[in-house]
């Protein structure tokens, strides 16, 4: 880490958080016109808009720290798979409604705790983004938690689907709470969030919700990691080829 300035590390950190938000926002946006009923279509879109908005704030900050004329769009549209550093859970295909809501719940529970910590970041821009994100996440969590309860404790089919979703997601949890030297270093300076400290309260909250939803905590022993190093599932490449289509087909233009 010695070679990297704090500014460069912060820039990379902002890109990571932007990637998380963009990729999840993109997955959520795929639901538009596909939700189980109209009210939910509107609600899911609001959540998608919040996450894409969050991505824009992180990317704009990264662009500012880059100081080389890059914009929020440079990060979203002009990087390839290996340069994306989102945590893997965000990129998984949207699956059925149970999968989308199970993922959303696990991430909302994480995101709210994360943003509450980031409120006291010594970096004022990150703290300001957190102030906005905390309000959004409170609402997101209320919604997604309710859905886990409804689907978990609804019909036999919904229970089955929710349990399957939780099982399929479980191995992507570990990565949420791991920090490489870049993040550890920034956390040491009070800039980044110490995510290792979030693990215990997150587990407690999630277990309580699953219990209330009559869902079992998976006893899986697998865990997949790699997002922060640009190692992804194959689905990300397809997501990017769609996301970046116009910018790749007609490079360098205003839209």
């Amino acid at each position: 880490m010695s070679a990297m300035t704090t500014q460069e590390a912060t820039r990379q950190y902002a890109i990571r958080l932007g990637d998380d938000a963009l990729i999840l926002g993109h997955r959520l946006s795929e639901w538009c016109s596909n939700a189980p009923f109209l009210e939910e279509d509107l609600a899911l879109t609001n959540v998608a808009l919040d996450f894409i908005g969050r991505a824009r704030m992180f990317y704009s900050y990264a662009a500012e720290l880059s100081g080389d004329g890059r914009s929020e769009d440079s990060f979203a549209y002009q990087r390839d798979c290996r340069e994306f550093t989102n945590l893997l859970m965000h990129e998984l295909p949207r699956g059925d409604f149970a999968f989308t809501m199970a993922r959303q719940y696990l991430i909302d529970e994480y995101s709210l705790a994360f943003m509450e910590q980031m409120l006291s970041s010594t970096d004022p821009t990150l703290a300001a983004i957190a102030a906005k994100a905390v309000k959004e996440s409170r609402y997101h969590l209320r919604r997604s938690r309710d859905w886990v309860l409804r689907l978990g404790d609804g019909t036999e089919e919904s229970h089955q689907r929710m349990q399957t979703a939780i099982n399929e997601l479980w191995g992507y949890n570990a990565e949420l709470f791991e920090m490489d030297t870049l993040e550890a270093d920034l956390a040491g300076q009070g800039i980044a969030v110490d995510t290792t400290a979030l693990r215990q309260p997150w587990s407690a909250a999630v277990q309580a919700t699953l219990a209330e939803a009559t869902l079992a905590v998976p006893e899986t022993d697998w865990s997949v990691r790699g997002g922060r190093q640009g190692l992804h599932t194959e689905s990300l490449g397809h997501l990017l080829s769609e996301l970046q289509f116009i910018q790749r087909a007609y490079p360098g233009l205003e839209w």
Partner: peptide, 21 residues
């Protein structure tokens, strides 16, 4: 929506389609 050329346009389009709903 998933192919909008900028993040700004993406948000606008998403908000617009949501309005239609």
């Amino acid at each position: 929506i998933t192919r909008a050329p900028t993040l700004h346009r993406k948000c606008v389009l998403l908000a617009k389609v949501q309005d239609e709903g």
